[in-house]
Amino acid sequence: MPSAPPRTRPLLHPLHGLLLAWPVALFPAALLSDITYLNSAEIQWSNFSAWLITGALIGGGLVLLWALIALARAKGPARRQHGLYLLLLALMWACGLINAFQHSRDGWSSVGTIGLILSLLSSLAALAAGWTAFAGYREVRP
């Protein structure tokens, strides 16, 4: 009997995937509204960013917790992928948290250069984490 080719298996539980959608969508959305604020000085864009980042942190926090448990339980080929995924999530969440404080400052200081860089970093980390999760991993058949 010829052995079947190795299959790609999803890394995530469906609910985990839905939660991951929060930071993946909201951090880049915050980045866009930050850019709009810096271009317009219209403060409502910065307010939008503050809420988007908060939402991303809530969803992202649950995902981070889930990913931590998943890594502890992972075995074999999935383990490496879980580790990378957790690392990216942690980077995303840390940048997001600092950025939430940054966005609680008043006026121009709520974004500025630092806020923009943090939004960019958390967006990239969120997208990379999402990519890592949804790319899945190669099942190795004995």
């Binding site: 000085a41 400052r105 006026g107 200081s109």
Partner: peptide, 16 residues
């Protein structure tokens, strides 16, 4: 207020 304080000390948070 809000552009400056104690005379001409500019507050950088106010844009434009």
């Amino acid at each position: 207020w809000p552009y400056s304080y104690w005379g001409q000390n500019v507050d950088p948070r106010v844009r434009p």
